[in-house]
Amino acid sequence: MATLELRNVNKTYGSGLPDTLKNIQLAIADGEFLILVGPSGCGKSTLMNCIAGLENITGGAIVVDGTDISQMSPKDRDIAMVFQSYALYPTMTVRQNIEFGLKIRKVPASEIDQEVARVAKLLQIEHLLTRKPGQLSGGQQQRVAMGRALARRPKIYLFDEPLSNLDAKLRVEMRTEMKLMHQRLKTTTVYVTHDQIEAMTLGDKVAVMKDGIIQQFGTPKDIYTEPANLFVASFIGSPPMNFIPVKPRRDNGQWQAPLASDQGQLGLPLQAEGVDLASREVILGLRPEQLAVAGEGARAVLQARVEVIEPTGPDTLVFVTLNGTKVCCRVAPDQAPAAGEILNLSFDASKALLFDAQSGERLAARSNTPAEGSAGNVAQFRGR
């Protein structure tokens, strides 16, 4: 196992071309599971290839256990990688695929047999050892690719979107198996994905990337509840966060965010110390679960007409329009209204966020407000 540091890592493919990676800085503790997540083209696979030594960096340093490995060849880095395409040798059996790297390193035959048996048991592929890749399903091939990496016992594992070729059901099953495997092995792992559900469920730490830049780095909980900007807030979460344009106004010395539906209006009070809201275009961010059906006896914050409902099983997604923007609310199935009904909406204002519409940066910290439906339901925001 090992620590991994990326110190101001840059990557460009030629003079005059924009940097693919821009001043990447990350520190991963021994045994941690890091997720690199972002849309296609954000640089996450390039960064992984740089860690593996398949790409040369053009600036900065990659440090493992305090040693700069930036100029080492891939074979000397003691890093194992599982590719998106699995990259299995089609003419070799499963056993031969798993043991190939060990034979190249001239590991004694008795040790190779022990490693193959250990890995096969861990991944539950003992009965597949005599088959060739063409005789395996996608999930079985994925296990073999993992087994080939696991047999080496490297310092660091790299996974480049290993589940993207699997169907939805198998992807969920393999995601659980990968988390169990990491809990048993406790080996430092870097995992690339564009799937934010994988990022939230698998990672100890998550780095959200866009255009070769780390937008935010932290725990899954921090990324979800305290997004640094509009991009992170929109990319992490399913369904995504609601973004409602508001034009703050001052009423009796108090800033308010006006919210309007076809059934009424609400002035949501804001505390904005040190922020001149009059000179800003502001976006209010609310997760779907922060909008709820007002309970019995609770003060209805705002009434809105239901436009669309989407049952998902455990939840029902309800869509209304606020400030001319379609907004999603997540409610329990037994609370679900019908399309066209008037919904009494209550806000969890304590978890609402404010973003600057021009820069996209988050302006606000969380407020300490009463529970939903109680008197004085006030959203408080503090500028950075």
Rank of each mutant, 00 (worst) to 15 (best):
A278W: 04
V190S: 04
L345D: 08
N368P: 10
G31L: 11
Q114S: 11
V190P: 05
S45H: 07
I112P: 11
A109Y: 00
F243R: 09
E32A: 14
N323G: 14
N97K: 05
D195E: 05
G203M: 05
V116Q: 03
M209W: 02
A149F: 08
G376H: 11
E32S: 13
L26C: 12
Q303Y: 13
E372I: 14
G66V: 13
Q196F: 11
R250A: 01
A2I: 07
Q303C: 00
G43H: 13
F33L: 14
I69E: 03
D356F: 14
P333Y: 13
T93N: 09
I156H: 02
G253H: 05
E296N: 14
G218H: 01
I309Y: 05
L34W: 05
K75F: 11
M146R: 01
L26H: 09
P269M: 08
A294M: 07
G16W: 06
K210V: 07
A2S: 14
I342T: 15
P239L: 07
L26S: 02
V119I: 10
L21N: 13
E161M: 12
S279F: 04
I213F: 10
T321A: 12
G324V: 13
T93L: 05
V306Q: 03
N165C: 02
I28K: 07
I51M: 06
P269L: 04
P258Q: 01
C329I: 03
A304S: 08
G212F: 02
Q135G: 13
E226G: 03
I214K: 01
M200I: 00
N323T: 06
P227A: 05
M146E: 11
R287D: 08
Q141W: 06
A375N: 10
A149I: 02
T188D: 01
T20C: 00
Q358S: 15
P39L: 11
L128H: 10
P245D: 08
E372G: 08
P370V: 15
G66T: 02
G376S: 10
I24S: 03
Y191F: 14
V318T: 09
S15E: 15
E126I: 04
Q263P: 09
N323Q: 10
P314C: 03
V37A: 03
L166K: 01
A149T: 06
I104F: 03
S346H: 08
A364Y: 11
L128C: 12
V275W: 01
G139D: 03
S261H: 10
V119Y: 05
L180A: 14
R366V: 14
K247F: 07
M174Y: 06
K11V: 12
N229Q: 02
E281L: 09
P90G: 13
V64F: 06
G297Q: 11
L266T: 08
D348L: 13
Q263T: 00
T93A: 06
K169H: 13
E198F: 03
G360P: 00
A352K: 04
Q196G: 01
E173W: 01
L123S: 11
A300R: 12
K247N: 02
H194F: 12
I213V: 15
F319R: 10
L47R: 04
T316F: 13
D76N: 15
V206L: 10
N97S: 10
V301S: 15
V63W: 10
G295C: 07
Q84N: 08
P90Y: 12
A304E: 05
C329V: 11
